[in-house]
Computed example of a mutant assay.
Amino acid sequence: MRDEEILSGSLLEESWLTLEQLAAACTAEPAWLQRHIDEGLIPQAESVAGVWCFSSITLLRARRMRQLERDFDAVPELAALVADLLEELDELRESAAGGRPE
């Protein structure tokens, strides 16, 4: 898959992605994702019976980090910090909107 292709769709909150599915959705190699998990940069990852499972929140974080690393040549730790800040902004906007989507 090329970086220029746009993926669209919707994830159900109760749906889980595998490591390979999440990597594909981020246009990244599974090894990239595994490194970030091992370094603690993607904290929302869960291992169930030895199989990694990821939520839609993790997908958003991983995509943001991948884009920051690719577009700005950011080191993984900086991309994770920016992703933390963006997640915090999302939460503040949601609480300011009274919990309703904008």
Score class of each variant (00 low, 15 high):
M1T: 15
E5A: 08
E5C: 03
L7M: 12
G9P: 06
S10A: 12
E13R: 14
S15G: 08
S15I: 05
T18R: 07
T18A: 10
L19S: 04
L19R: 13
E20K: 14
Q21E: 14
L22G: 02
L22C: 09
A23P: 01
A25N: 08
A25Y: 12
T27F: 12
T27H: 09
A28M: 15
E29I: 12
P30M: 13
A31R: 14
L33Q: 04
Q34V: 00
Q34P: 00
R35E: 04
H36P: 03
E39V: 01
G40M: 03
G40S: 05
G40E: 01
I42K: 00
P43Y: 05
A45D: 03
E46V: 11
E46M: 06
E46G: 06
S47Y: 04
V48Q: 04
A49Y: 08
A49V: 07
A49H: 13
G50N: 07
W52I: 03
F54R: 00
S55H: 00
S56A: 12
S56C: 07
S56L: 02
I57S: 13
T58C: 13
L60D: 00
L60G: 03
L60E: 01
R61E: 08
R63Y: 02
M65W: 03
R66P: 00
R66E: 06
R66V: 00
L68H: 01
R70K: 15
D71M: 05
A74I: 06
V75N: 11
V75A: 13
E77W: 07
L78V: 03
L78M: 03
L81R: 10
V82Q: 00
A83S: 04
D84Q: 11
L85F: 09
L85Q: 04
L86T: 02
E88F: 14
L89C: 12
L89S: 09
L89D: 15
E94M: 07
S95P: 08
A96G: 10
A97N: 13
G98H: 08
E102L: 14
E102Y: 08
E102T: 14
